[in-house]
């Protein structure tokens, strides 16, 4: 059983197991990779982004040519069910992918800030820390921001990632969404906190890879 093999692989990755322990338990058995269809929901939107080196580039540079897992964050987020949850899932996935040679070079992560006013390239570089370094473990993790809200909003709205002001205009709220994008730049799955679990995402990545074979 492929699912059992995957589970064994996950269990064999100590760091992954550690990260999974920190996550809410998955209360169902997800369908096996390749046994279902991931629909072409929409093309990932295009826009200008800034890398941690401050250089501008089209977002499509990071959403084409490989399987991309993209999530919006802001560096001051502290809600345990929000950005930190996404971070833990990304960390767990990174370790799982590192432990599986056949996935090396097939997947990348993109973390894009909601908050260009505070999350400058320098702040994002500090936030990324060692995560942004390619250690040859099979996965590149890119941290991006934008020059301004004017450049950010087409991306936020294009992805359907809602953000809104609450409480006297001094807070923003958003529903956690993470986007799985195929090599052609199409969004193929959108994870809310209910489905954002490394086992589910890994199955989806394998499902996309099976399409390419």
């Amino acid at each position: 059983m492929k699912r059992l093999a995957l589970a064994a692989a996950l269990a064999a990755a100590p760091a992954f197991a550690h990260h999974v322990e920190l996550l809410p338990p998955l209360d169902f058995v997800p369908p096996a990779p390749g046994s279902y269809v991931l629909h072409h929901i929409m093309p990932a939107p295009e826009g200008r982004v800034l890398g941690v080196d401050g250089r501008a580039a089209p977002l499509s540079r990071y959403t084409h040519g490989g399987i991309t897992l993209l999530g919006f964050i802001y560096t001051t987020c502290s809600d345990p069910d929000g950005c930190p949850l996404a971070y833990r899932v990304f960390d767990a996935l990174k370790e799982a992918i590192a432990s599986r040679h056949e996935l090396h070079g097939k997947v990348r992560f993109v973390t894009l800030s909601f908050d260009p006013a505070r999350d400058t390239p320098e702040v994002m570089k500090s936030y990324a820390g060692s995560r942004a370094l390619d250690k040859g473990n099979g996965l590149r993790w890119t941290f991006l921001t934008t020059r301004s809200a004017r450049e950010l909003m087409p991306l936020v709205e294009g992805f359907g990632q809602d953000v809104r002001v609450t409480r006297n205009g001094r807070e923003l709220s958003h529903v956690l969404k993470v986007f799985l994008i195929d090599a052609g730049g199409d969004v193929r799955e959108i994870y809310s906190s209910n489905f954002l679990h490394p086992q589910v995402v890994l199955n989806d990545i394998e499902t996309l890879l099976a399409e390419e074979r």
Partner: peptide
């Protein structure tokens, strides 16, 4: 441009909500 002003505020506290 919608809600652009949100990001001009440097003292924003950002919160995240889960599923409905």
């Amino acid at each position: 441009m919608r809600r652009l002003h949100c990001f001009a505020l440097t003292t924003l506290a950002l919160a995240l909500s889960g599923p409905a």
